[in-house]
Structures are given as C-alpha cells and as structure tokens.
Design a protein around this nucleic acid. Structure first.
Lengths: 282, 282
DNA sequence: GCGGATCAATACCCGGCAGGTATCGCCGAC
DNA sequence: GTCGGCGATACCTGCCGGGTATTGATCCGC
C-alpha cells in the first residue's frame, strides 16, 4: 500500500462523499473512484458500502481508517524528524519540550535548571499547550519530549519515565462553604449547585455535551472558578498558582496524578536521553 | 513521501550498497540511485555519504532509517489488521493472544476460562513465542492482544492494563548449595562458578556477547539449568513448572515483575475490549 | 409518475514517471 | 598503468495516475 492510496482512502472515509473528497485532495472524482477500487481489489476487502447515492464504511473500512491515520502520522513524523535531525547536525541543536500550560511548573523549572547545568546540554524550547495537544505534537515529530499527566493523557506509543505522583484538590471560590473542610470526597464536589465541573475538548477539538462551561486551558478554568461559574478538580501542585480569591481542598478519593516524561519510542537523540536521565534524578 | 521510497531507502541503508539493495528490491541499480536522489532532494537533506567506492549513513539518514522502519511497520500493520477485520466480519471472529511460552500460565488459564464464560465471547487462539517476539507480533497486526512482562518487555506503542506483580526467584539445579537458603540477593547469583546467567536474543535476533549459554525460550533455559550449565532468575510463578531436579530460591532485590495485558493503541475490536475488561477483573 | 438533480462508475485519452539498458567517471587494488 | 567494482548519467519505453466526457442509478419535487 502506498501512502497516496491511504491518503485517498482517509479523505473518502472522512467525507463519505467521493466528489468532496476529490476536491479536498485536489484531483478529479473518477481517478479517486478508481484508486479506491484498486485498493479494495489489492486488499481483497470491501472498504466502503456504496450505493449510487450514499457511501458508508464497512467494518474493515473503519479499521483501515484508524490504522491509515496512524500510518500516515508515522510517515509524516519520519519526514519531520529527519528534517529536524539534519538541522540539528548542521546548525543549532535544540530540544523542544511540550507541556500543559500551568501544570507542573515547579517541576519544569527544576528540570530545566538541572538539565542546563549538565555538561553538553543544548538549548530547550518550551511549548505550552492545551491538554491532549502534547501527545499530538510529540507524535507528529514537532516536539522531542513532553511532560504528560496520567491518567489524563494517554502515553500509548511513547517511552516514559515516572517523575512523581500527587493527589488532587478541588479548587473553589474563596468563601465557599466547602472551603472550611479539611478534605472532601469526589461525591461532595460533583453536582455542586451552580458550580459544575468544566468540559475539556476531546482530542478532535469537539466538546462533549453537558452542563459545565467549555475550557481550553487551566488559566481559563481558574478564572471561571473565581467568577463562581465552575469548580475544578486539579493536581495539588496547582495550589502554587492560586490567587487569594481561590481556595483548594484535598479530594481524598480522586485518582492520583502521575507526571511522566515521555519521548518517541525510536528517539536516537543524545540530548533527549540526557534530559530524561536528568529528570529521573530530580 | 511514498512507502516505495521508504522501502528503497531502508534497503540501501541496510545494505550500504546500491547494487545489492537493488537486487534485494528486484529492480535495477540506476532507478534506485535516482529514487534516493529524489528523496534527498524533496527532503532537502543528505541521507547518505557516498563516494564512488563506499556508502555511509549521515546523521539524518540514520534517523530516517529508524523512523522509516516504524512507518513501514505501521503501514503493514494497517493492511494486516484491515484484512483481519474483514475476515472477522464475514467468518469466524477469533482473537489471537500471544504470550511467552511458560510464563504466567496459571494467570493465562484463569483469563481464558473467565473470558470464555462471558456473554459474546469469541474463540481465542493462543500463540506461545519467545521473549521479545510478542511485541513484534502485536505491532505487525498478527496478534490482537499480548501478555507482556515489565520491565523485560517494552510496552511502548500499546495500551496496557496491569494484571499483577510478583517477585523473582533464582532457579538452580536441585542440590546446589544455595538451595538451602531461604532467600538470596542478586549479588549471590551473578557469577556463580559454572552457572552463568543465560543470554537472550535481542529484538533483531542476535545474541549479545558474554559467557552464558544462548537460549530462545524458558523451557530451553530450564533444561540447561537442570543440566547444571546455567542458572536463571525468573518470576516466581515459574515455580509451578519446575521438575523435581530444579529448585527455586527467592531473590530479594531482583526487580518486581509486572504482568500486563497489552493491545494496539487503535484497537476498535469489541472482543479485545471484553477480554481486557475480563482480565482486569480477575 | 415523471423529469431533473446528484453522485458514483465507466470509457477513453494523455503525459509523466518508474524502470530498463548502455555507458561513463571515479577510485582502489594489483 | 590497467583492470574491476561501483555509483551516476543518458536515454528510451510502457504503465499508470490523472484528466474530460458520459453513463447509470437513485432520490426528490411537483
């Protein structure tokens, strides 16, 4: 299978419409029809159920859609990492580290300091992004290493080392009745009147349905909490960033959050290895 | 980048010889030279240092070699999983589970029994293979789910659930002086006179240099121990398979072994999800 | 129920590119 | 110096990817 065929199939599978898919690919519709037919013939598998009016994925087709996206990601990552390696060899060999904005900032500062003190350290660019974006950047070869937080972030496809574990707290507007408690349970904070938990975007950028406000990052969320429009359950290290109008109370039965440093499974970079080693020694 | 180009590049990078690579690919040498030149031009990156007598990988080239292999694996896995999905839809929807021969057999039996009792269970084929082969089979789409053992097996690229943790024992010929001890430490069993630890094959099938005998699976290893040619440090669940001519003594400071159930990150199979759920409830 | 609209499939043509053969140019070995 | 091995170049050919025109089938409005 050639990547061209996979790209064509993904386009059709996503559009479920040969004409639109062809337009998106910048080719005419007949060659696209033919390419998909060839792909099906070579695989010996029906990928699409098509009537002359409608197109639907077969069971095998929906498997291929997922797998083809993964394979195309791998090809793109190969290209990008090769380009990065060439740059690193000739010019400025820098690392790109990606982490969630407002998360583990203390750990991050310690890590960057400790790594910078290592012999042979290279400059590290830090990218701050919304949750669930880190994995994509790392997978696409746009970043060399990431700080992820289990169980929120999936670490599938990466090598990881655990850096630390912490409990979670509920962040509330200062003066809320619960802030007098020394601790609470999850059941105490779900469904608080007027303080719903927020909705985070799914990996595809869409928001699940529900009552809470939509948030893209932690700063937004804290602002909404301060406004009395939401409450938040967050790792306790976020306490360092709370203003006086916010209060945090430990949630005893919330899952422990593990911060891990993650890098692509095939990284051959000396700098990444050094950074990881530094991180594990913190 | 097309998979054809990647395949060509991998062949040249592995052979470091255009003529032999072309032969391996079943094409003539000139088109291969041209294809690699095009690839380099499109990437804007030198991949190979070539004189008219010798070919060597550049830094970027060795990155691409690793990444290209991973990308080609992903493409092949996409093809195989699609074919499997088509078979499952039309014919006998079976699962393929792969595990190390002689490992976790009790757990495996319990898992298969429990899963078979689930409503909607499908037949499960079990593949037993040598260590480090499981990950390959799973990655290549030849198996749906695997039992892996951390820290021996890398779980990079898979979703996993932990099933249990156990200590390790040293397996010795019956009557060996150490068998009278209630426990030992790692230092006690490395470098035992005449009883070296064995050498396991690397992922590429080659053996590291060293004194111990080469083994491919656990049964071979136990046989060598019985013959007084080696000793073995293994998870304690292997005790169930020891004959009377072998003895096991706990090793206090050997790393804990965690058995995990692993499946490809993009699995959409209902049967895999059921099996995993069953496993976590054991 | 009929005509038009819509959409995938088919028919057919063209140009580019993958692949082949022949050859060159370079370099190391003897 | 000559020969042999190896990658690059030159040039040709046929296939295949892509284009336009058209058909055939289904849904929809009236």
């Amino acid at each position: 299978m050639e990547t061209r065929e996979l790209r064509y199939f993904v386009a059709v599978a996503e559009e479920l419409h040969f004409g639109r898919a062809a337009q998106r690919l910048g080719i005419a519709q007949p060659p696209l029809s033919r390419a998909i037919q060839q792909l099906e013939r070579r695989l010996g598998v029906a990928l699409l159920d098509r009537t002359s009016r409608t197109v639907a994925l077969t069971e095998a087709g929906s498997v291929l859609l997922v797998e083809a996206r993964a394979a195309l990601d791998a090809v793109d990552a190969a290209e990008r990492r090769t380009r990065r390696a060439a740059l690193a060899a000739t010019g400025r060999p820098g690392l790109v580290l990606v982490t969630k904005a407002n998360a583990s900032s203390e750990l991050l500062a310690k890590l960057l300091d400790a790594y910078a003190a290592e012999p042979g350290a290279v400059p590290v660019d830090v990218i701050l992004c919304g949750p669930a974006e880190q994995a994509r950047l790392l997978r696409e070869g746009r970043a060399d290493v990431a700080l992820l937080h289990r169980p929120f972030d999936s670490t599938a496809g990466f090598h990881t080392e655990e850096l630390g574990t912490e409990g979670q707290v509920v962040v509330l507007p200062a003066g809320h009745p619960l802030t007098t408690r020394s601790h609470v349970h999850l059941a105490d904070v779900t469904g608080l009147p007027g303080l719903p938990l927020p909705r985070w975007p799914a990996p595809d950028g869409s928001y699940p349905p529900g009552p809470g406000p939509q948030v893209r990052d932690h700063a937004q969320l804290l602002q909404l909490v301060a406004l009395g429009r939401a409450c938040a359950v967050s790792p306790e290290s976020c306490r360092a960033q709370l203003h006086s109008d916010l209060a945090a109370v430990p949630v005893l039965d919330a899952p422990q959050v593990t911060t891990v440093i993650a890098w692509p499974a095939h990284s051959r970079s000396r700098a990444v290895a050094d950074l990881v080693r530094t991180a594990t020694r913190l």
